[in-house]
Amino acid sequence: MSEEKTPTPHVGDLLISEPFLQDENFSRSVVLLCEHNDDGSFGLVFNKPSILRINEILEDFDFLDLEVYVGGPVEQNTLHYVYWGNKELEGSIQIGENLWWGGDFEELVSRLKTGTFDLENIRFFLGYSGWAPGQLIDELTEDTWIICKEEVDRETFHLTPEELWRNLLKNMGGEFKVIANYPMDPRLN
Protein backbone atom coordinates (compact mmCIF):
# COMPACT_ATOMS: atom_id res chain seq x y z
CA MET A 1 0.00 0.00 0.00
CA SER A 2 1.49 3.37 -0.96
CA GLU A 3 1.53 6.15 1.55
CA GLU A 4 -0.18 9.36 0.44
CA LYS A 5 2.21 12.30 0.44
CA THR A 6 1.29 15.41 2.44
CA PRO A 7 0.95 18.39 0.10
CA THR A 8 3.58 21.08 0.56
CA PRO A 9 2.26 24.55 1.37
CA HIS A 10 3.74 27.60 -0.34
CA VAL A 11 3.51 31.32 0.26
CA GLY A 12 0.35 32.63 -1.40
CA ASP A 13 -1.58 29.39 -0.94
CA LEU A 14 -4.96 29.46 0.72
CA LEU A 15 -5.51 27.03 3.59
CA ILE A 16 -9.16 26.01 3.80
CA SER A 17 -10.30 24.49 7.08
CA GLU A 18 -11.99 21.13 6.83
CA PRO A 19 -15.75 21.48 7.42
CA PHE A 20 -15.92 19.98 10.91
CA LEU A 21 -12.92 21.70 12.47
CA GLN A 22 -13.96 22.41 16.06
CA ASP A 23 -11.47 25.22 16.78
CA GLU A 24 -13.64 28.36 16.90
CA ASN A 25 -10.71 30.46 15.66
CA PHE A 26 -10.65 28.55 12.39
CA SER A 27 -14.13 27.15 11.77
CA ARG A 28 -14.88 27.48 8.03
CA SER A 29 -11.76 29.64 7.66
CA VAL A 30 -9.67 30.52 4.66
CA VAL A 31 -6.12 31.44 5.69
CA LEU A 32 -3.79 33.23 3.30
CA LEU A 33 -0.30 31.83 3.84
CA CYS A 34 2.12 34.79 3.94
CA GLU A 35 5.24 33.03 5.18
CA HIS A 36 6.32 29.38 5.38
CA ASN A 37 9.88 28.26 6.15
CA ASP A 38 11.98 26.27 8.63
CA ASP A 39 11.17 28.81 11.37
CA GLY A 40 7.41 28.23 11.10
CA SER A 41 4.46 29.64 9.22
CA PHE A 42 2.45 32.87 9.27
CA GLY A 43 -0.96 33.50 7.75
CA LEU A 44 -4.02 35.72 7.89
CA VAL A 45 -7.61 34.49 8.15
CA PHE A 46 -9.12 36.06 5.05
CA ASN A 47 -12.78 35.52 5.84
CA LYS A 48 -13.38 36.41 9.50
CA PRO A 49 -14.60 39.99 9.93
CA SER A 50 -14.14 41.56 13.34
CA ILE A 51 -16.66 43.86 14.98
CA LEU A 52 -14.22 46.77 14.62
CA ARG A 53 -13.65 49.36 11.93
CA ILE A 54 -10.20 50.73 11.10
CA ASN A 55 -11.17 54.25 12.27
CA GLU A 56 -11.99 52.81 15.70
CA ILE A 57 -8.54 51.27 16.05
CA LEU A 58 -6.07 53.86 14.79
CA GLU A 59 -6.12 57.64 15.01
CA ASP A 60 -4.23 57.78 11.70
CA PHE A 61 -7.35 56.34 10.07
CA ASP A 62 -10.02 58.49 11.72
CA PHE A 63 -11.15 59.49 8.21
CA LEU A 64 -11.62 55.90 7.03
CA ASP A 65 -14.59 53.65 7.85
CA LEU A 66 -13.35 50.27 6.65
CA GLU A 67 -13.91 46.75 7.98
CA VAL A 68 -11.09 44.99 9.85
CA TYR A 69 -10.69 41.21 9.83
CA VAL A 70 -9.43 38.88 12.54
CA GLY A 71 -6.15 37.61 11.11
CA GLY A 72 -5.92 34.95 13.78
CA PRO A 73 -5.65 34.37 17.49
CA VAL A 74 -1.99 35.40 17.84
CA GLU A 75 -1.03 38.95 18.93
CA GLN A 76 -4.38 40.56 18.24
CA ASN A 77 -2.85 43.91 19.15
CA THR A 78 -0.95 43.95 15.84
CA LEU A 79 -2.25 45.30 12.53
CA HIS A 80 -1.43 43.67 9.19
CA TYR A 81 -2.61 44.43 5.69
CA VAL A 82 -2.68 42.76 2.31
CA TYR A 83 -3.46 44.41 -0.99
CA TRP A 84 -4.09 43.26 -4.53
CA GLY A 85 -2.78 44.78 -7.76
CA ASN A 86 0.56 46.35 -8.59
CA LYS A 87 3.16 46.98 -5.91
CA GLU A 88 2.05 50.25 -4.34
CA LEU A 89 4.13 50.54 -1.18
CA GLU A 90 7.86 50.43 -0.51
CA GLY A 91 8.77 47.37 1.52
CA SER A 92 5.74 45.29 0.50
CA ILE A 93 6.41 41.56 0.25
CA GLN A 94 5.02 39.78 -2.79
CA ILE A 95 3.03 36.71 -1.80
CA GLY A 96 1.19 36.07 -5.08
CA GLU A 97 1.17 37.20 -8.68
CA ASN A 98 -0.57 40.48 -7.82
CA LEU A 99 -0.75 40.11 -4.06
CA TRP A 100 1.29 42.07 -1.52
CA TRP A 101 1.70 41.90 2.24
CA GLY A 102 2.54 44.98 4.32
CA GLY A 103 4.74 47.82 3.21
CA ASP A 104 5.57 51.34 4.32
CA PHE A 105 2.81 52.26 6.78
CA GLU A 106 3.37 56.05 6.63
CA GLU A 107 3.15 55.91 2.84
CA LEU A 108 -0.08 53.91 3.11
CA VAL A 109 -1.64 56.46 5.49
CA SER A 110 -0.63 59.32 3.18
CA ARG A 111 -1.97 57.58 0.07
CA LEU A 112 -5.25 56.73 1.80
CA LYS A 113 -5.67 60.33 3.00
CA THR A 114 -5.11 61.68 -0.52
CA GLY A 115 -7.37 59.06 -2.09
CA THR A 116 -4.57 57.62 -4.25
CA PHE A 117 -4.88 54.06 -2.93
CA ASP A 118 -7.81 51.90 -4.07
CA LEU A 119 -9.80 50.90 -0.96
CA GLU A 120 -11.38 48.04 -2.91
CA ASN A 121 -8.00 46.29 -3.04
CA ILE A 122 -6.86 46.33 0.59
CA ARG A 123 -7.78 44.32 3.64
CA PHE A 124 -6.72 45.00 7.25
CA PHE A 125 -6.25 42.31 9.91
CA LEU A 126 -5.87 42.31 13.68
CA GLY A 127 -3.58 39.51 14.81
CA TYR A 128 -2.38 36.59 12.78
CA SER A 129 -2.30 32.82 12.55
CA GLY A 130 1.01 31.25 13.42
CA TRP A 131 2.50 27.78 13.41
CA ALA A 132 5.71 26.61 15.07
CA PRO A 133 8.28 24.77 12.93
CA GLY A 134 6.65 21.61 11.56
CA GLN A 135 3.24 22.36 13.09
CA LEU A 136 1.49 23.27 9.84
CA ILE A 137 2.82 20.13 8.13
CA ASP A 138 1.49 18.07 11.07
CA GLU A 139 -1.94 19.72 10.72
CA LEU A 140 -1.93 19.03 6.97
CA THR A 141 -1.09 15.38 7.66
CA GLU A 142 -4.06 15.25 10.06
CA ASP A 143 -6.32 16.73 7.33
CA THR A 144 -7.10 19.86 9.32
CA TRP A 145 -6.42 22.01 6.26
CA ILE A 146 -6.99 21.71 2.53
CA ILE A 147 -4.41 23.51 0.39
CA CYS A 148 -5.95 25.61 -2.35
CA LYS A 149 -3.59 26.78 -5.09
CA GLU A 150 -6.14 29.20 -6.57
CA GLU A 151 -4.59 32.63 -7.05
CA VAL A 152 -6.02 35.35 -4.84
CA ASP A 153 -7.51 37.97 -7.13
CA ARG A 154 -9.69 41.04 -6.83
CA GLU A 155 -12.85 38.90 -6.61
CA THR A 156 -11.42 37.20 -3.50
CA PHE A 157 -11.56 40.57 -1.74
CA HIS A 158 -15.27 40.98 -2.52
CA LEU A 159 -16.78 37.62 -1.64
CA THR A 160 -18.60 37.35 1.69
CA PRO A 161 -16.87 35.15 4.30
CA GLU A 162 -19.30 32.26 3.68
CA GLU A 163 -19.04 32.60 -0.10
CA LEU A 164 -15.24 32.51 -0.03
CA TRP A 165 -14.98 29.20 1.85
CA ARG A 166 -17.68 27.56 -0.30
CA ASN A 167 -16.61 28.98 -3.66
CA LEU A 168 -12.97 27.95 -3.25
CA LEU A 169 -13.98 24.37 -2.44
CA LYS A 170 -16.50 24.23 -5.29
CA ASN A 171 -13.89 25.53 -7.74
CA MET A 172 -11.52 22.75 -6.67
CA GLY A 173 -14.11 20.23 -7.90
CA GLY A 174 -14.41 16.53 -7.12
CA GLU A 175 -14.74 15.62 -3.44
CA PHE A 176 -14.14 19.26 -2.49
CA LYS A 177 -17.29 20.33 -4.33
CA VAL A 178 -19.24 17.92 -2.11
CA ILE A 179 -17.50 19.20 1.06
CA ALA A 180 -18.49 22.77 0.14
CA ASN A 181 -22.13 21.87 0.80
CA TYR A 182 -21.65 20.24 4.22
CA PRO A 183 -23.91 21.91 6.75
CA MET A 184 -22.35 23.62 9.79
CA ASP A 185 -24.16 21.13 12.01
CA PRO A 186 -24.76 17.80 10.22
CA ARG A 187 -27.47 16.89 12.75
CA LEU A 188 -29.63 19.58 11.16
CA ASN A 189 -29.32 18.05 7.71
Rank of each mutant, 00 (worst) to 15 (best):
1 M>H: 13
3 E>T: 15
5 K>N: 08
6 T>A: 11
8 T>P: 02
8 T>W: 02
8 T>F: 12
9 P>T: 04
10 H>L: 09
11 V>E: 10
12 G>L: 03
16 I>Q: 01
16 I>M: 01
16 I>A: 02
19 P>G: 01
19 P>C: 07
20 F>Y: 14
20 F>E: 15
23 D>W: 02
23 D>P: 00
26 F>N: 03
29 S>M: 00
31 V>K: 01
31 V>M: 04
31 V>W: 00
31 V>E: 00
34 C>W: 01
37 N>M: 05
39 D>Y: 05
39 D>L: 04
40 G>P: 06
42 F>M: 10
45 V>H: 06
45 V>T: 14
46 F>E: 04
49 P>D: 03
51 I>D: 13
52 L>C: 08
54 I>V: 14
56 E>Q: 12
57 I>Q: 07
58 L>C: 15
59 E>T: 10
60 D>P: 08
60 D>K: 08
61 F>Q: 02
61 F>S: 04
61 F>M: 06
64 L>W: 15
65 D>N: 15
66 L>E: 14
66 L>K: 14
67 E>I: 08
71 G>H: 00
71 G>S: 01
74 V>Y: 04
74 V>I: 09
77 N>L: 08
77 N>P: 01
77 N>A: 13
79 L>M: 13
81 Y>A: 03
81 Y>G: 01
86 N>P: 09
87 K>W: 03
87 K>R: 13
89 L>K: 06
89 L>C: 11
92 S>G: 11
92 S>M: 07
92 S>D: 06
93 I>D: 13
93 I>S: 14
95 I>L: 12
96 G>T: 06
96 G>P: 01
101 W>Y: 15
102 G>C: 10
103 G>K: 11
104 D>E: 12
105 F>I: 13
105 F>C: 04
107 E>V: 03
108 L>P: 09
110 S>K: 12
110 S>W: 09
110 S>L: 14
113 K>I: 15
115 G>L: 04
115 G>D: 05
117 F>P: 01
119 L>Y: 11
119 L>T: 15
120 E>V: 05
120 E>G: 06
121 N>V: 13
121 N>L: 09
122 I>Q: 07
123 R>V: 11
124 F>I: 14
124 F>A: 05
127 G>M: 11
129 S>M: 10
132 A>G: 14
133 P>M: 02
133 P>Y: 01
134 G>A: 09
135 Q>R: 07
137 I>L: 07
137 I>M: 13
138 D>A: 05
140 L>Y: 07
142 E>T: 09
143 D>E: 12
144 T>Y: 04
145 W>A: 02
145 W>Q: 00
148 C>V: 02
148 C>M: 09
153 D>T: 14
157 F>I: 11
158 H>R: 07
158 H>A: 12
158 H>G: 14
159 L>I: 09
160 T>R: 10
161 P>A: 02
161 P>G: 03
162 E>S: 10
166 R>E: 00
167 N>T: 05
169 L>S: 00
174 G>S: 12
174 G>P: 02
180 A>T: 00
182 Y>P: 07
182 Y>A: 10
185 D>P: 08
188 L>G: 06
189 N>W: 08
